[in-house]
């Protein structure tokens, strides 16, 4: 039995707590979405999306642990890689609008 299935209090398992944590991360991500929408500069948006991406990675990992789906972690790794790629690509693009690619 994995520890995620372990009941700790009131019939709720560790996995349930992790799911609640993931939900908390989603709520926090909504707050960051404000900055991604409002900006005002392009860099602000890139930054907000980068933070959102990191959040998504954590959410994926938490879901993977809570639902006992270790393959979610592979997806999380790919997501982290693409998140990094996005940050350096878009931030470079904002300099002279891609003129220095």
């Amino acid at each position: 039995m994995s520890i995620a299935d372990l009941a700790i209090a009131g019939g709720y398992t560790v996995g349930d707590v992790l799911l609640v944590g993931a939900a908390g991360f989603v709520v926090l991500a909504l707050g960051m979405l404000y900055r991604a929408v409002v900006g005002p500069t392009m860099q602000d948006r890139v930054l907000a999306v980068n933070v959102l991406g990191t959040n998504t990675v954590v959410i994926l990992a938490l879901l993977g642990a809570a639902l006992d789906e270790p393959t979610f972690l592979d997806i999380a790794i790919v997501y982290a890689l693409l998140n990094f790629l996005m940050a350096i690509a878009v931030s470079k693009f904002t300099v002279e609008r891609g003129g220095v690619l």
């Binding site: 997806i75 690509a89 470079k92 690619l101």
Partner: peptide
């Protein structure tokens, strides 16, 4: 046996080349 396969792996490998391109210049 896991999420993946030729398409996904090829895309990740291409992403590595893109990453190098963004860091070192085209």
């Amino acid at each position: 046996d896991s999420p993946g396969g030729g398409f996904q792996g090829g895309a990740i490998a291409a992403a590595v080349v893109l990453m190098i391109a963004f860091a070192f210049g085209i």
